[in-house]
C-alpha cells in the first residue's frame, strides 16, 4: 500500500484518513474510540500543509502503521468488552443521587 518513500496520492491520504476513522468507531471502549478519532483528525491537520515529499511519505507511513495497530486492537478490545457500558455511551441524562 505505502510505496516505500514515494509520496502518497491525495486519494490514498483521504482513504487512510477515512479508514482510521472507521477503525476508531469500531472500538467498544468509549475513551479509546474518542481518542483515536481525535488523534486522527489532529494528526492529519498537523501535516495538512506539508509539502516536502519525504515528510509526507513518512507521515503517511506512520499513519498506515497506526491503522494496522488500530485494526488489531479494535478486535482485541471488542473481544473483552465489558457487559456494562460506560455511562458516556448510555444516552441518559446525568443523574445525581
Amino acid at each position: 500500500m505505502a510505496g516505500g518513500a514515494a509520496a502518497p496520492s491525495p486519494t490514498q491520504v483521504r482513504e487512510l484518513f477515512k479508514s482510521l476513522l472507521r477503525e476508531a468507531r469500531k472500538f467498544s471502549n468509549y475513551n479509546v474510540r474518542e481518542y483515536v478519532k481525535r488523534r486522527t483528525v489532529d494528526g492529519f491537520q498537523e501535516h495538512r500543509d506539508a509539502s516536502d515529499p519525504a515528510a509526507v511519505a513518512a507521515a503517511y507511513e506512520y499513519g498506515v502503521k497506526q491503522l494496522e495497530i488500530a485494526k488489531r486492537q479494535a478486535v482485541v478490545y471488542n473481544l473483552y468488552a465489558p457487559k456494562v457500558k460506560s455511562i458516556m455511551d448510555l444516552k441518559i441524562k446525568p443523574s445525581s443521587a
Binding site: N31, P82, V84, K85, S86, I87, M88, D89, L90, I92, S95
Partner: peptide
C-alpha cells in the same frame, strides 16, 4: 448502584 461504568 450505577447506570454504567463511571467516567474515569
Amino acid at each position: 448502584k450505577m447506570a454504567g461504568r463511571p467516567l474515569y
